[in-house]
Write a protein that binds this DNA or RNA. Structure first.
Lengths: 159, 159
DNA sequence: TATTGTTATACTCTATAACTATA
DNA sequence: TATAGTTATAGAGTATAACAATA
């Protein structure tokens, strides 16, 4: 098994590290561009703001809860394009760290209202500073006009 | 613990599902746009082409190896912006499924040359068709000019 | 010393399915 | 029946650290 090779013996070990980017047809694929960009952004944030102890995803949850005290898990999931169970994981971790707390709703006892704790507010403030810096790195390469274009074009993909 | 709430009792359970998108300042963050777009693309591919049994990442590895028979893991990693260990995981899984095979290089015995198997070639052909369809869904919402703009702007982030 | 492949390990994000309580 | 939260489970992707073989 594993021996039904398709092109017998060409270029064995002769692949020159091929300078930089030249992936052939692959280069045409917009989806690949998007994944690479996503990866680059993710990587930059982790490398520069990892000490914060929060991922971008976690920050967006804290941010959202900070803007909407009393919000429920379902709404968090819906607003950030997540599954209910995925939101649970996020929320639970943040709760366990004492950054958010819960109060059962009285009008609808199925729902649970979430708010930031004082600690959560404090860390969110730091996180916002980090995000601001990170955004400067990300957006600094564009003019205001290009930035507007980019936002408009990207928004058309998921809205 | 968990009782040091910050805003005593406002909006408990009164959060109206808030129609659609309105995340406040969060909406300004380009990084968030990128993550949402990435998620949407990922989701669409999985939902429509999951039966193929290949992820977009796996396809890009097969595609790359197909274009560069004899390529080594390090080069795959470098060309697709991955860690060596991450590439290992990908490559190993594809190998185990009989889609790629290896031949130790003779000129440099540290390197291993990878090629697609016949099975790999066949599946890649199917995958390319899927990607083409997926790309049509993705790019169909843009004019040719917008598409060029978008590609140019995105490329500026990781190049 | 540097590079290639490897293994072990770990964490984040994601989702599905099934369950409980409530509406 | 439908919704909110929960739990168990799984898989993809990512990375770090340490090791062996080779250059």
């Amino acid at each position: 098994m594993g021996n039904n090779r398709v092109s017998k013996t060409k270029n064995i070990g002769v692949e020159p590290p091929s300078s930089t980017a030249e992936i052939g047809e692959l280069d045409t694929i917009l989806g690949l561009h998007i994944r690479r960009v996503h990866g680059a952004v993710q990587r930059h944030f982790g490398e520069h703001f990892g000490e914060l102890g929060l991922t971008q995803k976690q920050i967006s949850v804290l941010w959202l809860v900070g803007n909407h005290p009393g919000i429920a898990q379902t709404d968090i999931a819906q607003k950030l394009d997540m599954d209910r169970a995925t939101a649970m994981t996020l929320v639970h971790a943040l709760e366990k760290r004492g950054l958010m707390c819960r109060t059962p709703s009285e009008s609808d006892r199925r729902r649970i209202a979430f708010e930031l704790t004082l600690q959560g507010e404090a860390l969110l403030a730091q996180a916002k500073a980090a995000i601001t810096e990170h955004e400067a790195w990300l957006t600094g390469r564009f003019t205001a006009h290009e930035l507007k274009q980019l936002r408009t074009l990207l928004a058309r993909i998921y809205r």
